[in-house]
Design a protein around this nucleic acid. Structure first.
Length: 282
DNA sequence: CACCATGTTCCTTG
DNA sequence: CCAAGGAACATGGT
């Protein structure tokens, strides 16, 4: 479930659920998820600590746990299929529960079928991130200056987390559609006006997704497939609510909502891109 | 069997 | 040194 909006919504749900909780024990079913932190190191650092705060940076979650002496920060990333939720201790763990924090009340479960996610004490990844989309210092001028250095298609650059943090494959296509810019346009060819518009659209698309997700009472504790997958309504077979919000993503061959032309799917940097060849000319 | 999937990192090539 | 492309990671859905 992982792009910036989903991670932000998850953080908002987890924060109150973790408030005041203490870590009594830690279970690791997939040590790979912790690397480069070792299982022993991870357990020793966390057992006995108390949850303090949770923040988001790009698609990463930063959990602060506290002992009398110091703060321990855990970096979480959902990869492609990761989910995090608080479950009653009586509930059976899902098949791919990678890490479980046994709390004084309930379990914090990190489940990830493909195990691409992370739960680690190594914070190096966040230091490589570019600015948050809403960072006021991240102006269109600065954005454009960075884009000038690359001839890669703009869609591919939007996925570069060191350029701007949090945009993923779905919202990259969506933002470009909103901005009426072709995903194939070379990054260094964007005009300042286009760059301004794109930055505005990235912000709008992400903000809208956060709003939308935040209004939904996610049930993270259940085993249902749809839990937490709020933007994947179609694949999860539910919520047409979402379907309407994604205007091009995963809509290959279906009519563009603005002009009726069939939405196209192309492959860029080994990832699907969806766009309208008529609305997104340049 | 084939192909697809919300992400990141590492390796190679130029 | 950098940019760019592709494979790898691991599992499941269609």
């Amino acid at each position: 479930m992982p792009e910036l909006p989903e991670v932000e919504v998850l953080a908002r749900h987890l924060r109150p659920a973790l408030r005041g909780r203490t870590v009594r024990g830690v279970r690791v079913n997939r040590a790979k998820i912790l690397q480069p932190t070792s299982e022993r190191e991870f357990k020793r650092a966390l057992i006995g600590t108390k949850f303090k705060t949770l923040s988001r940076r790009g698609k990463y979650l930063l959990f602060d746990f506290q002992t009398a002496k110091k703060t321990v920060t855990v970096l979480g990333h959902l990869g492609m299929t990761g989910r995090m939720f608080i479950a009653d201790k009586s509930e059976p763990l899902p098949k791919h529960a990678a890490v479980v924090l046994e709390l004084d009340r309930g379990n914090f479960v990190f489940e990830d079928t493909r195990y691409f996610g992370r739960m680690t004490l190594d914070l190096a990844a966040v230091e490589k991130l570019g600015p948050e989309p809403w960072d006021e210092k991240f102006t269109a001028e600065i954005f454009r200056r960075e884009l000038k250095r690359s001839r890669q298609p703009i869609k591919v650059k939007l996925l570069d987390q060191s350029l701007i943090a949090g945009v993923g494959n779905i919202y990259a296509s969506e933002a470009l559609f909103h901005a009426r810019i072709s995903p194939k346009l070379a990054a260094n060819k964007l005009t300042l006006a286009q760059t301004e518009k794109l930055l505005r659209c990235v912000r709008e698309v992400l903000a809208e997704a956060i709003d939308c997700g935040s209004t939904i009472p996610l049930n993270f504790s259940g085993g249902k497939k749809t839990d937490g997958l709020f933007y994947f309504g179609r694949a999860a077979g539910a919520l047409d609510f979402y379907e309407e919000r994604l205007l091009v993503y995963d809509r290959n061959g279906r009519p563009c909502v603005k002009c009726g032309t069939a939405v196209r799917r192309i492959v860029q940097a080994a990832r699907s891109t969806f766009f309208c060849g008529r609305c997104q000319k340049v």
